[in-house]
Design a protein around this nucleic acid. Structure first.
Lengths: 369, 369
DNA sequence: ATGAAAGCGCTAACAC
DNA sequence: GTGTTAGCGCTTTCAT
């Protein structure tokens, strides 16, 4: 076994309480005993065991993170932001993936709960009706959604009583609908009229639907006929033959594609090339996410840039805020035998998005208009 | 406070030991008590507290992961592989980043050690002489290196006594030197003779140096004059004016660039375009890593493909092997008052690399030969 | 300033 | 099959 506070105390000839005190508030022990203890610690190579500390304290200074996958740069960057911020605040990060499987969301959270994380940051398939979030709420574990964008309080109030709870939930995201609307409006401004949205599965990502709404907003505002979105699985279109046929027809082919994420946009560009189409000459492609490699490509992928690392950073700081605000509250509540309310009251961070212009987007060819 | 095994026992009218038994080996309690206990668990929403379990058991079923950054897809994929494998084996993952700062490596590991992780997977700047690895070894915490490639046992034996220790260390990687040699040989086979290596800082990544050695191997085997590598910071070359001058000169300009990683290759291609050079017509570019987006680009980025997710998978399984092999050993050793040896004896996994051909590489223009 | 002791949640002997 | 008890490493009253 590794040396514990006990061996240190023994070697230094003091009680374990004194060692603990030195570790926590060094001011409260005399200089000479401190000296002795420090020597013992060094000699034994003692390192405080967080497990013991956590058990005693009832908190772990650890947050759990649940994202769909790390294959999408967006989530990797977000996790990066979370980790950086966590380290700065002296928190540790326990990390899990769901592979976009809603049933894995609960399993992941259950595991984190078993580890007694102090809070959770997650990106779920659908933040609207989500058993995992209900679980978190029931357990009164602070959590913050990343990328999932909660409906605003006004909308909630108009809805039924269930929505009430959602009002208290926290999320950090861009305004997906407005951002998508901006992107599509940009295409319209360039002269495009037949704009097709290509989207990840709506049931795998509520953002996809929000972005489609933004597409509808822009089309309708311009008096254009919106098209139904094409939902695509696994970022490859090669199997979608109906889609290929549409693209093959120069008369009905859209002049611009708006993709619900950059991976999709990149794959689409690859597929379009395979079909013999040039971007942007034959068709423009606009992405969403603004992943860094998009800017290295030729042509540069035009895209809505989300501040992913910042989303992680803000999510973590919001979460820690809630955790630490809950601490005194919990103590007070315990005194009156009442459940604490560590849920985060309606913090809906909307971070600014930007439009990255790029060579993948250009005015439509005159013939197409 | 959350319900503990104690409240469950009380509500069910049994002792805490019985509850614990039901949780661990359900066979050992009678059907009716099991029923009662299950009801109490459900009623209270009880969830076993790993902290208590870990404190008692002395292990945490948690592994620590330390990588330089998540901004590089390679590490994100690796972490993905680790997480998947960990979940399958019922382990949790605690994750940290070093931002390529060697001094952060130790800090990260110290923190993980405080959490009493059962083992660590890490990618360090330099696996050769590394205080962090020495610490891990001293603490007898199993660890596995990912991407860092340990020198082989034969080389160690020839070296001094210090190298002995390294023999027992585990690593999972491709054969960086051979892979780089393959890549450069491919370029040579295409007719290139002036091949320039562009590399990340040697002191930030020992792989960079190993890959440079592979470059040297290939050049020398072909009887060509190797060029010193150009070390580049932060994946952008715009500041390196001497480099720009070299590129501007069509006579002395290399006909091919071999980059120590794909991000660098992509940045280089962007910079070459800015200089008015065409890839591959004016110059070929070969990368290393085989990040997925490379295959979506036009031209496709030719690259050495590392199986990053598999590296993570193998690293985790190797680690867990070592952890669980160490358990009985530790118990036995404790009996005879001797230190256990959970270090992993010289497991050097070399995973196969492949060469992804792509349009970024072509034979040199006749004039350049 | 320091020590003694209780207890956080859990498991594993050891009784019965 | 079940209960009693000790103890994992730590913090924190409460004494002194």
């Amino acid at each position: 076994m590794r040396p514990s506070i006990k061996q240190v105390a023994h070697l230094a000839g003091v009680s374990i309480a004194t060692v603990s005190r030195l570790l926590n508030k060094p001011g409260s022990v005399s200089a000479e005993t401190a000296e002795k203890i420090h020597r013992s610690i060094a000699e034994l190579g003692f390192r405080p065991n967080f497990t013991g500390r956590n058990l005693r304290a009832g908190n772990s200074r650890t947050v759990g993170v649940v994202v769909p996958t790390l294959s999408n740069t967006v989530f990797a960057q977000c996790l990066q932001g979370i980790e950086l911020a966590a380290r700065a605040l002296d928190y540790s990060v326990m990390f899990t993936t769901t592979e976009y499987l809603p049933e894995d969301e609960s399993a992941a959270v259950e595991l984190l709960l078993g580890h007694r994380v102090d809070g959770v940051i997650l990106t779920v398939a659908d933040a609207g009706a989500n058993a995992t979030l209900d679980l978190l709420e029931r357990e009164r574990i602070p959590f913050v959604l990343a990328y999932n964008q909660l409906a605003d309080a006004a909308a909630d109030a108009a809805a039924d009583a269930d929505a009430e709870a959602a009002t208290h939930r926290a999320s950090v995201s861009v305004d997906n609908r407005a951002a998508a609307c901006d992107a599509v409006s940009h295409l319209i401004g360039l002269g495009h009229r037949r704009i097709q949205m290509l989207s990840g599965r709506f049931n795998a990502s509520d953002r996809a639907m929000q972005r489609y709404c933004g597409y509808l907003d822009a089309m309708q505002a311009a008096g254009l006929a919106p098209l139904p979105a094409i939902e695509v699985e696994r970022h490859t279109l090669t199997a979608a033959t109906d889609y290929q046929q549409m693209m093959a027809d120069p008369l009905h082919r859209p002049t611009a594609l708006f993709c619900s994420n950059d991976l999709l946009a990149l794959s689409a560009m690859r597929d379009l090339r395979a079909l013999g189409l040039q971007v942007p000459e034959d068709i423009s492609v606009m992405g969403f996410d603004g992943i860094p490699v998009g800017a290295l490509m030729q042509p540069v992928l035009a895209s809505v840039v989300q501040p992913s690392e910042q989303i992680g950073d803000v999510a973590l700081r919001t979460l820690v805020d809630a955790i630490e605000r809950a601490l005194p509250a919990a103590a007070a509540a315990a005194a009156v035998e009442e459940a604490p309310v560590p849920v985060i009251a309606g913090v809906r961070h909307i971070l600014p998005h930007t439009l990255r212009e790029g060579g993948s987007v250009a005015p439509p060819a005159p013939a197409s208009c």
